[in-house]
């Protein structure tokens, strides 16, 4: 507003100077009075035109909203807005991650022989409209049921004694196979339901 008023005052000063010089050019005749009147009207028009425009602008409230803040103020407001957006995005991603972890844990728990599941994922924000985030990695820490070993060891294979040495290799192989099977199940479920690359799913069985 001050800038607009300053501009009007500057223009008025220039116009008055201009017309003063013009009056010096007028011929000394009976026509001088006529010309002076018209030059006076010209001054009035040139002064009133910007004032009228200025007053008309006042009536529109929205025009003030766009005119008032200077560039620096607008930049500050925009920066604050960006901070709020970033904070909200961070909160949303955190909430999304927590819920996905809960869902994954619940789904993995449905697989037989699993006792406890702890899941941790990392989510990368996406710029796509409507998108929240893309799952980068999924880590699982699993404990199997205590009775799992006895379940599939109901009929243990009798140890074969070779060269007088007692070997327990068959039991450990079976357990490893069972763990591998569980890992494959978990990987399949998570990869299919949550569209995660199988290579980024890491499972640790305790």
């Amino acid at each position: 507003m001050i800038e607009a008023l300053g501009e009007i005052v500057r223009n008025v000063a220039i116009i008055v100077l201009l017309t003063s010089f013009m009056e010096m050019l007028l011929p000394n005749s009976s026509l001088q009075r006529f010309i002076k009147v018209i030059v006076g009207l010209f001054i009035m028009v040139t002064i009133l035109n910007p004032i009228l425009t200025f007053l008309k602008q006042d009536m529109v409230i929205s025009s003030w909203q766009f005119n008032l803040p200077s560039k620096e103020e607008m930049d500050t407001v925009l920066a604050q807005g960006q901070e709020v957006i970033d904070f909200q995005q961070h909160q949303i991603i955190g909430e999304y991650q927590a819920r996905l972890e809960q869902q994954m844990e619940a789904m993995v728990k449905l697989i037989p022989d699993i006792n406890t599941v702890k899941c941790q994922i990392s989510v990368e924000p996406v710029d796509k409209i409507g998108g929240i985030g893309k799952i980068n990695t999924a880590d699982f820490w699993i404990t199997l049921r205590d009775d799992i070993h006895t379940d599939f060891l109901v009929e243990p294979v009798k140890p074969i004694i070779i060269d007088g040495k007692n070997s327990n290799a068959s039991v450990s192989t079976v357990i490893e196979e069972k763990q591998l099977e569980i890992k494959e199940k978990i990987t399949g479920v998570i990869a299919n339901y949550f569209n995660v690359d199988k290579n980024f799913i890491k499972i640790t069985i305790n």
């Binding site: 500057r10 223009n11 008025v12 220039i14 116009i15 100077l17 010209f42």
Partner: peptide, 16 residues
């Protein structure tokens, strides 16, 4: 030039 600086309508100035 002065009139242009003061944003005066050139139509009025030409009339003068």
């Amino acid at each position: 030039d002065l009139a242009l600086q003061a944003n005066v309508n050139m139509f009025y100035l030409n009339t003068i």
